[in-house]
């Protein structure tokens, strides 16, 4: 990018070289093939963890390069990071509570089934 201008009035946004975009796209396709392969293989219970690690790698590639976060103001990345953190909190608190009412649900379900079969 030889025509980089440092004039604050002119300089808006960051232009990504095409070669970098192509590399990122290639990486994303490779990771997709990898996740299909690992998804079909038996990984002895690690399937979900492996799939999520690969998905997170793909998501990072999209965020940092396609969405320009690597070159953008850190504040925009922070906004995005906070949204992901709050999703994490949401998941964590709900998961903590998830088994709490299962016995009641099972009891209710088995009563319903008894009523239907009667």
């Amino acid at each position: 990018m030889s025509d980089h201008s440092h004039d604050s009035e002119e300089h808006i946004g960051h232009i990504l070289p095409l070669s970098l975009l192509l590399k990122v796209f290639g990486g994303l396709v490779c990771l997709t093939i990898l996740t299909v392969m690992t998804g079909k293989a038996d990984l002895h219970g690690a399937d979900l963890a492996v799939a999520m690690v690969i998905a997170t790698c793909k998501a990072s590639l999209v965020c940092f390069f396609f969405m320009h976060l690597k070159y953008d103001r850190p504040f925009h990345g922070m906004i995005f990071l906070f949204s992901v953190m709050f999703v994490g909190l949401f998941l964590a608190f709900v998961t903590l509570d998830s088994e709490a009412y299962q016995d009641d649900i099972r009891e209710k379900l088995s009563n319903d089934i008894l009523q239907i079969s009667e």
């Binding site: 996740t35 299909v36 998804g39 079909k40 690969i54 999209v62």
Partner: peptide, 11 residues
Amino acid sequence: IFLFPLLYLIS
């Protein structure tokens, strides 16, 4: 990217 493995790739 997250939906695909979560829904389609459960072995």
